[in-house]
């Protein structure tokens, strides 16, 4: 959408919950149109980084820019897939209703969703293979199905940038394939995708860009160039050998 500006630019970002910094002086430039994995050990600040980009968490220092402007001015260009465990799935609502929530941002205050919003939500449900579950109470969906619902909710936001917090967590192989196909399709359409990811084995297969994070930013760039044992060792602190570079 904008040829010169990066999708996301982070400068000197520092975040702390208590006395201990969770993110320390992060500088990161994410170019437009990449499918990027954020990898790092537990407690590395991966979710915090995503939440800082989205303005959910206020940083102690530093700035985040989305296509050259603060997030607040670009809310309509960014979609978010939170961790599945972050909400109470016993909430009294249906699958379709949750997906429709993705349209609320564009609707703005007070205006209610109508036929148009329902139509795009149904399309998104179909895309993630969940159309037959549209009227299902959300607590009666399996973990993988709940994850698909969250993905569908982000899809209806029709954004330029998608931030996803562990979308593959606790899903079976079929769902993982289905999700990654949708992500790749989005990238084909020129969207930027940023995904917190845990399975190092699949990084080269799924992603074209990667950021190594462990409180500090270790490295960021094309998977082909920087996804190597050296960076993995720096990030995870142990001598890492992953059979990925063959």
């Amino acid at each position: 959408m904008n040829n010169n500006l990066p999708a996301i630019q982070i400068d000197d970002l520092t975040v702390a919950y208590d006395y201990k910094p969770v993110l320390w002086d992060i500088d990161l430039v994410i170019p437009e149109g990449v499918l990027m994995a954020i990898v790092g050990p537990n407690g590395a600040g991966k979710s915090t980084l995503i939440k800082s980009i989205l303005g959910i968490i206020k940083p102690i220092a530093g700035t985040v820019q989305v296509f050259g402007k603060p997030y607040k001015k670009q809310v309509d260009k960014v979609a978010y897939v939170p961790q599945k465990g972050s909400v109470d799935w016993d909430f009294p609502t249906t699958a379709l209703d949750v997906v429709m929530m993705g349209t609320y941002g564009n609707l703005g205050w007070i205006k209610r969703p109508g036929q148009k919003e329902k139509k795009v939500s149904l399309e998104a449900l179909e895309k993630v293979g969940m159309l037959e579950f549209k009227s299902r109470q959300i607590s009666q969906l399996s973990g993988g199905q709940q994850q698909r619902i969250f993905l569908a909710r982000a899809l209806v936001q029709n954004a330029e940038i998608y931030l996803m917090d562990e979308p593959f967590q606790g899903v079976d192989a079929t769902t993982e394939k289905a999700i990654i196909n949708i992500l790749k399709e989005l990238r084909q359409a020129g969207k930027t995708l940023i995904v917190v990811h845990h399975d190092l084995q699949t990084v080269p297969e799924y992603f074209d860009w990667v950021t190594f994070l462990n409180v500090k930013g270790i490295a960021s760039g094309p998977v082909m160039e920087i996804f190597n044992d050296d960076n993995l060792t720096k990030t995870y602190g142990i001598n890492y050998k992953v059979a990925v570079n063959q």
Binding site: I56, V78, Y80, P82, S86, V87, T93, Y104, G105
Partner: peptide, 22 residues
């Protein structure tokens, strides 16, 4: 009735509500 949509969103997912600009 006026803020039904926003309140429902808030009940279900506070962080997401924030990211949508509410």
């Amino acid at each position: 009735l006026l803020f039904w949509k926003e309140l429902k969103l808030l009940l279900f997912d506070v962080d997401y509500t924030k990211t949508l600009g509410f």
